[in-house]
Amino acid sequence: MKKSILLVLLTAIAITSCNQKETQGVSEPFATLVVEDEEMPMMRQPQATASSLKAPQLITKEVVKKKIIKDGRMGIEVNNLELAKARIDSLIKAYDAYYSNESMNNTDWKSSYNLTIRIPSLNFETFISAVEMGKGDVQYKEIDARDVTDEFIDIETRLQNKRAYLKRYKDLLSMAKNVKEILEIEEKIRRLEEEIESTTGRLKYLSDLVDYSTLRLTVEKLNDFKYNPEKRDKFSERIKQSLSKGWYGFIDFILLLTKSWPFLIVIIPLIYFVRKIRKKKKQDK
């Protein structure tokens, strides 16, 4: 009887201990899962802000500055020519321009200034507007703009290539082994230097046309018609001149005959024989 009671107690203790172990085994992973579930959002938030939110990379392109050549023709009719010219002179100073050519014409019908003006391209339009605001009527106006960007880039590229070739030939010249190679390389260097000089001149010419625009301006004033009688000498002086010219003409004629005496020697006998032949023919008839 005592043995059976002892066996029951041992069985109950064993079952109780097993239940406690199962409870502990289940609660520890769960606690861990709960902690992980609570910490996961906190762990993800800084990772998202630090690594995933990066600024996008911007792709930049090189902007090519346009090379524009501007030319213009303009004609203005004014009432006071000198006052208009003085105003143009003041505009030249104000806009950093200059005259490349200046001429004046004065006739019975009109007086005019023909001006070729070089103006900084940035001031070209404002200069023309300032001229138009002056006193006078605009007779004509023509503005032309040419885009030479492609030509400018092409010349610069060829110039860089020629300079690179020139450097290579100079390096080869230092390594030449005989006189023949030296002469051949020096000839190529000479040609390249001439081409570089010509290309550089063309580039400077285009740069000047781009930096300074050209305006051909004509400022004119119509004149009132006035009869101006032609000045003539006195009658006695004119008689003297006529007698003198007649005498000189006669002398020139005598000199001409004197110079042509060889022809007279040939012509006179020829005329004599021709007349004799004609006379004989008439007699035969």
Rank of each mutant, 00 (worst) to 15 (best):
E39Y: 13
I76L: 15
E197Y: 04
K66Q: 12
Y169T: 01
S100D: 04
I251A: 11
T126Y: 05
L257K: 06
V138L: 00
N79S: 12
S242G: 09
E237M: 05
V26C: 11
A55R: 06
R190K: 15
D171V: 09
G201M: 04
K281H: 09
R87C: 00
G249T: 05
W261G: 03
F250I: 10
S4K: 14
D89R: 01
I76E: 01
V64R: 08
E36P: 04
L243E: 12
L256M: 07
K285L: 13
T199V: 04
M133G: 06
S242C: 09
L215K: 00
L166P: 03
E237C: 02
G136K: 02
D96G: 04
A176V: 08
E28P: 01
R44Y: 06
I69W: 00
K276N: 11
S51Y: 12
T157M: 10
E230D: 07
V274A: 15
E39R: 15
L203P: 02
N105E: 15
F152Y: 13
D150L: 13
N228Q: 08
Q24T: 12
A97M: 00
T214Y: 08
S236W: 08
R190F: 14
S111W: 02
M133N: 13
L173P: 03
K167R: 11
V179S: 14
F263A: 12
I182D: 03
E39L: 15
Q47P: 00
L243D: 08
T49S: 12
M133P: 00
N79L: 11
K67Q: 06
E193W: 07
K141R: 04
R202N: 09
I88L: 07
R191C: 07
G75V: 00
K170E: 14
R278G: 07
L166F: 01
S17P: 05
L256N: 09
S129C: 03
A84N: 03
E181S: 06
F225W: 13
M175R: 10
A50C: 03
A48G: 06
I265N: 13
T126W: 03
K167L: 09
S112R: 02
L255S: 13
E156K: 14
S121T: 09
V148H: 08
L173N: 03
N19L: 15
E102M: 05
E151V: 09
R232V: 14
G25Q: 14
L173T: 00
L122W: 00
I196K: 03
I69V: 15
I196V: 05
R44L: 13
K245P: 03
I268Q: 09
S112G: 04
M104Y: 15
K231V: 10
D211Q: 14
R275V: 11
E39S: 14
K135V: 06
Q139M: 06
L270S: 11
E181G: 02
A130Q: 07
I182V: 15
G136S: 03
F263S: 09
A14Q: 10
Y113F: 14
D211F: 06
V179C: 07
P46W: 07
L172R: 05
S174M: 11
D147R: 03
G249I: 04
D208P: 04
D224A: 10
P56H: 10
K135Q: 11
D233Q: 06
N114P: 04
F225M: 08
L172E: 13
Q20P: 02
T126K: 02
M74E: 02
L10M: 11
I76Y: 02
